[in-house]
Design a protein around this nucleic acid. Structure first.
Lengths: 162, 162
DNA sequence: CAAATATAGATATCATATATCCGTAATTTT
DNA sequence: AAAATTACGGATATATGATATCTATATTTG
């Protein structure tokens, strides 16, 4: 059970978009070059973010993406779920229903304890991701990235932003 | 990102084995019939449990599996990891290294904030699973299962246990 | 009008999950 | 001693999803 690589891509892209000045857009092409990713496939991840309403897109030359909300309003979970989907990581096939000892026509009123426990673990995972805002990520990244590199990167970005 | 169905199978099987009297064994065949699962494939899950040291197996007619520890000593995480593996659900490809602004030969001293945050979420998920013992599961299952069905099931099991 | 862009759909490739089959060694039952 | 039953490992097959590319279309900029 491994998360799609698109999750990592989307998080990095959002961190970059968070540093983009109001009203400017960054293209898929620029984001792909910056992270060394396949442009066409990265595009799918960005479309997921767009459909989830996390980013706003615009067409034409000088088009691309910008955040649709403030970095404080965007959580890790928003981004992860936009790409990975919102369904739970544990799927209950309700195999207890196959028990040959069961009376015919017996119907379960609620999911069994196994599913509930697995879903609770799923929920703490989501809650942990919900507790981190994109703005928190940007702070941490700016702190751990060498000053010069951080500055050069956003210069590079600004040169390509429409 | 979905957990293998084997995870659910392994949890149900362990719950059954927890109700088995000291020194008795239950075969793959019986466990497969009880849960309506493909015998050969379920066997792979049970082998994973065996290799992880969670269950003990014995050969020959009247052979099969029993728990290798007390239900209080076995956690959800033990069982999940035996089947699903212990590696993290987020794999960091370190795409920041592809940044064209990077000075040549630059080497990262530690994983970036994105990986650390994702791994923290992974850890709370694991911790939640670690907090539930197999004995807790059995208690909850016995409480939510109709008395008669519970009784019939273990009668059925005892009839097939070696 | 020409170039650049996001978007959607179709397709191809690869890895993994799911599933089955077989042979072997060990053990119990007959 | 023979036969039946079992766990186990390896090989193989199939289905599903992740990864990746390509094309066509509509939109916007210059």
């Amino acid at each position: 059970m491994v998360l799609k690589s698109q999750v990592e891509w989307a998080l990095h892209c959002c961190a970059i978009l968070a540093g983009l000045p109001e009203g400017r857009y960054l293209s898929t092409k620029a984001l792909a070059e910056l992270h060394g990713l396949p442009k066409e496939y990265l595009s799918k991840a960005l479309q997921s973010l767009s459909q989830a309403g996390l980013v706003h897109s615009t067409l034409g030359p000088s088009g691309g993406y910008r955040l649709a909300k403030q970095p404080e309003e965007l959580t890790f979970l928003d981004i992860v779920e936009a790409v990975e989907g919102t369904s739970r990581t544990f799927v209950c096939a309700n195999i207890r229903a196959n028990n040959p000892c069961r009376p015919k026509g017996h119907c379960d009123s609620s999911p069994c304890a196994i599913a509930r426990i697995m879903w609770e673990a799923d929920e703490v995972w989501r809650q942990k991701l919900r507790d981190v805002a994109l703005s928190d990520l940007v702070k941490r990244l700016s702190r751990e990235t060498p000053r010069a590199l951080w500055k050069d990167t956003f210069e590079w970005v600004l040169n390509r932003a429409g």
